[in-house]
């Protein structure tokens, strides 16, 4: 019986290892991972103490999701929902109308298949 128990434990370790390997692969990437790739390098343009306002052109139902995922990626910089900050992170979906950016200067920008980001600040 001990041998059977050891075999079950070994099989348990094997399926756990296989699953973790799968979770670590590109195929298991979630939206947070693709956003992480999209926003990679943004930290070079902001200080860890910055307060950044969050804006998006996406439907209201997506605001929370995109805000929290961006907040996780940018932390320890603080991403806030209020708009009273000099620097703004704008996330836009390609097919939706763009938000006017005339008053702002772009610090950094990039895009992927679904989203486009612009890190910008008010023109002085």
């Amino acid at each position: 019986m001990r041998r059977v128990a050891v075999l079950v434990i070994l099989y348990l370790c094997w399926i756990t290892f296989k699953n973790y390997k799968k979770l670590d692969s590109e195929h298991a990437a979630t939206e947070l991972d693709t956003m992480n790739v999209l926003l990679a390098g943004v930290e070079n343009y902001i200080s860890p103490h910055s307060n950044i306002a969050f804006q998006t052109n996406t439907p209201a139902g997506r605001h929370g999701v995109l805000y929290f995922k961006s907040a996780l990626i940018l932390a320890p910089a603080v991403l806030q929902l209020e708009s009273n900050a000099d620097t703004i992170l704008l996330l836009e979906e390609h097919q939706l109308p763009e938000i006017p950016k005339e008053q702002y200067e772009t610090i950094s920008a990039g895009d992927n298949q679904h989203l486009k980001y612009t890190l910008m600040r008010l023109k002085r």
Binding site: L23, A28, A29, T30, L32, D33, G64, V65, F68, K69, A71, L72
Partner: peptide, 10 residues
């Protein structure tokens, strides 16, 4: 799955 449900990442 990676990062879990809402509260896990939020």
């Amino acid at each position: 799955y990676r990062w879990g449900d809402w509260d896990a990442w939020a």
